[in-house]
């Protein structure tokens, strides 16, 4: 889980930085979106890289989810009886909601692909017109609302997930603990804010 999680985290950072290109205007953004399909040429044929990346990411998501499912099953089996007196969690909220947040994110990813990759749910839905597709979706308040909820889930997931990954990979040391926790929170805030700037800007009319 740690490895696949970190892989997806890496992708998200690049994804977020790419999204911000929308502020350079329609042409730049559409050009960027088009370029993504040409990465690796001429060694690779058109969009091959993209498919490789999609495959790797899909694999990562599937492995991450499978591990999460197996771990949850094992954990629920290990503690079948709950305490009569509700256990007050000592750990933070982010830790508490990992499981539900993860499920929310999985559903969100499906929605997100149907919205911007296959364009099935996109109101504009013109292939190649990435800028207009984005604007059309986020102009609807409840779509933006879905994104806001999802990105908050993402932030929480990363805040615990990043530290937890460092823990699982045995990278934490007493001397590094503060730094790792700080980095986790930093990444969480950065990604949540970075991803939300675009829909909020669209809804606010700053991008149209």
């Amino acid at each position: 889980m740690a490895v696949t999680g970190l892989l997806m985290l890496l992708f998200l950072i690049v994804h977020m930085l790419g999204n911000l290109k929308i502020f350079y205007g329609r042409d730049d953004f559409d050009h960027y979106a088009g370029w993504l399909r040409t990465i690796g040429e001429p060694v690779l044929h058109g969009a091959w890289y993209l498919w490789i990346q999609r495959f790797v990411l899909l694999l990562a998501v599937v492995l991450h989810a499978t591990s999460a499912y197996q771990l949850s099953r094992r954990d629920l089996k290990a503690r079948p009886t709950k305490y009569a007196h509700h256990q007050r969690a000592q750990a933070g909220y982010a830790t508490h909601v990992m499981r539900y947040g993860g499920i929310t994110l999985a559903l969100f990813i499906i929605y997100h692909i149907l919205d911007f990759t296959t364009l099935t749910l996109n109101r504009h839905g013109v292939e190649g017109a990435a800028y207009d597709n984005v604007v059309s979706s986020f102009s609807v308040w409840w779509v933006t609302a879905i994104y806001i909820v999802a990105m908050i889930c993402l932030g929480l997931h990363i805040q615990h997930g990043f530290w937890s990954a460092a823990q699982t990979l045995g990278l934490n040391r007493p001397s590094r603990d503060r730094a790792v926790r700080g980095l986790a929170t930093g990444l969480a805030v950065l990604l949540t804010v970075g991803f939300l700037i675009v829909p909020v800007a669209v809804l606010a009319g700053l991008v149209d």
Partner: peptide, 13 residues
């Protein structure tokens, strides 16, 4: 049959 660790930190508290 012990469960798996999800780094909740409840143990150390």
């Amino acid at each position: 049959g012990f469960g798996g660790c999800t780094n909740t930190g409840e143990c150390t508290v």
